[in-house]
């Protein structure tokens, strides 16, 4: 039997909001270490990797490894029925063909359960190599979401240039060109609002705004976002989910052919 119970049910609600526009279906791979989900978006351009560790749940039981193929639009609809303060439990019998979501209101007076059919998905699994990145930028996630939204009005690509002084986001298009420069925060008193850059060597790469704007749907999961860049390898946009895991998005840079 598989059962995962989370008092902070809003995390699962936010996770679905963060992936449902990019992926229509995905497999939740569960074992005794926790829940992993990895899937390419429908156009196979970007990759999403979610990890929710067992020790982050208030109760976690996984007698046998189980892979649950789900339609994420359906899961998102079900999780929309959960209150922000509800406890959410996911459970499934071993080799079951359905999964059940149980929502309990804080005062236990309202308990809802939703049973959903599972899908047989044989999605490809990709190996993500361990990579040392030339540049790593930690910044407020709301700031990054704002920059992606603003610059995508100017062009369908965004250039991210990282040096030890700071990071510059640029876009050009018919209506003109836009540049947003963020300096590295000098005195880091509030980590969550700081821009922190670790740079081995400067990097300038171009990315499709459309995908970056999909990634920023995860903004509500974490006050900070971490961008990791190296020449000619995919960008990693990571949102840490407090005390339980992370969601990482991978996108290859656009390159001159």
């Amino acid at each position: 039997m598989f059962e995962a119970r989370l008092l902070r049910g809003s995390i699962l609600k936010k996770v679905l909001e963060a992936i449902k526009d990019l992926l229509t279906q995905a497999t939740f791979d569960c074992d005794d270490s926790g829940i992993q989900l990895q899937a390419m978006d429908n156009s196979h351009v970007s990759l999403v990797s979610l990890q929710l560790r067992a020790d982050g749940f208030d109760k976690y039981r996984c007698d046998r490894n189980i892979s649950m193929g789900m339609n994420l639009n359906s899961v998102a609809k079900i999780l929309k029925c959960a209150g922000d303060k509800d406890t959410v439990t996911m459970k499934a019998q071993d080799n079951a063909d359905t999964v059940t979501f149980v929502f309990e209101s804080p005062n236990q007076e309202k308990v809802s359960d939703y049973e959903m059919k599972l899908m047989n998905l044989d999605l490809e699994h990709l190996g993500i190599p361990e990579t040392e990145y030339s540049c790593t930028i930690r910044m407020p996630s709301a700031e990054f979401a704002r920059i992606c939204r603003d610059l995508s009005q100017f062009g369908d690509s965004m250039v991210i240039a990282c040096t030890k002084e700071g990071v510059k986001f640029s876009a050009t298009g018919e209506i003109g060109s836009a540049n947003i420069k963020l300096a590295q925060t000098a005195s880091v008193d509030k980590e969550e609002e700081a821009v922190i850059i670790e740079m081995d060597e400067p990097v300038t790469l171009t990315f499709a705004c459309q995908y970056l704007n999909y990634f920023t749907k995860a903004t509500s999961l974490s006050p900070q976002v971490q961008l990791s860049m190296s020449a000619d390898v995919p960008l990693v946009v990571e949102y840490r989910i407090q005390d339980i895991g992370h969601i990482r998005y991978y996108l290859a840079p656009k390159i001159e052919d």
Binding site: M40, S43, H44, V45, S46, L47, E124, H125, L126, G127, I128, P129, S157, T206, A208, V233, P234, Y250, L251, A252, K254, I255, E256, D257
Partner: peptide, 14 residues
Amino acid sequence: KIVQFPIKVYFAMT
């Protein structure tokens, strides 16, 4: 010409 390669070009299937 600027091209966008799919992620599979960079990460091998396991």
